[in-house]
């Protein structure tokens, strides 16, 4: 019986079949990768969009909350009292005496001016002199 294909034809057909199968497999793989990449890209874009939208919404909510708080604070003022030590050493009489009007007025003469030897005073104490220097 005479074979349908000669050995050479059979070899070529087999080779052609293998090439076609490989090409098909490669095309299938490439298509799968491309489809997967496209899907991933779309997913990432969706996630980005979603995140941006969520952030914008949160920011808007925070702004609205802050405005509401500010409005509430303006209508409900609160005095914050910081505890401080009681300071009562300097009494009102001394404080007023030291800071009353005219306390910084320059000029004038000492009451004792020119009368050091004539004022009837006790002798000065033997204490050492105090200092008046620039400081």
């Amino acid at each position: 019986m005479r074979p349908l294909l000669s050995p050479a034809q059979r070899n070529r057909s087999r080779l052609l079949l293998q090439v076609l199968s490989g090409t098909l497999a490669a095309a299938t793989a490439a298509g799968t990768v491309a489809a997967t990449a496209a899907a991933a890209h779309e997913t990432a874009q969706d996630q980005t969009d979603n995140a941006l939208g969520a952030a914008a919404a949160e920011a808007e909510a925070a702004r609205a909350h802050a405005e509401a708080l500010a409005e509430w604070a303006a209508e409900n003022p609160v005095v914050v009292v910081t505890p401080r030590p009681e300071r009562t050493v300097v009494g009102p009489e001394v404080r007023v005496g030291a800071s009353s009007s005219g306390s910084a007025t320059v000029g004038g003469r000492p009451s004792s001016a020119g009368s050091q030897g004539r004022v009837d005073t006790p002798p000065p104490p033997p204490a050492p002199p105090a200092k008046s220097t620039g400081s």
Binding site: P110, S112, V119, P125, A127, P128, K131, S132, G134, S135
Partner: peptide
């Protein structure tokens, strides 16, 4: 009434 106050000595200088 300065008679109730002694004349306190004070030394003067630009710096201590």
């Amino acid at each position: 009434n300065v008679t109730s106050v002694p004349a306190y000595p004070v030394v003067l200088a630009g710096t201590v």
